[in-house]
Amino acid sequence: MEISFTINNLSQTIELEDGQTPLLWVIRDILDLKGTKFGCGMAACGACTIHIDGEAVRACSFPVEMAGGKHITTIEGLGTPEHPHPVQQAWIDAIVPQCGYCQPGFIMATAALLNKIPNPTDEDIDRNIINICRCATYYRMRKAIHKASQLQSQTVNPLKS
């Protein structure tokens, strides 16, 4: 079957036999975007969190056939070292990562949270950021999430200016 979608602002058409294949493996092994990680394959850890039409989705449990026509963003499309997303900038400022494996998933989950709740309370963070970090960088992450919220609110929205 053939599936077309937009990923990191590029339109892509994928030809594959099994439409049930998790989107994660299409992203990693066909499109060669390795920043989205495999942790559990059961949507339990969040290492594979991406955005589909702006919503945080766990790609390991999302059949590729459901991605047709969608707008997908992965960590590679969120920001660059020259133009980091506010969440990435906050992560850098707080020196959050240790091993780093789960971090793209947390960063994507946080970016999606700030789209919905620009100024999250600690309770909002506890309820929404439910990925797993085995290095247990949660203490710095919480600080970084609040910082990202500040940075995002300071960013001038080009559509409004």
Partner: peptide, 19 residues
């Protein structure tokens, strides 16, 4: 000193065995 792998890890560079 900020850890030297900070940017690789924040921007999702392929650096792990799984990649």
């Amino acid at each position: 000193i900020p850890r030297i792998d900070l940017y690789d890890k924040v921007f999702g560079k392929p650096i792990f065995g799984m990649d």
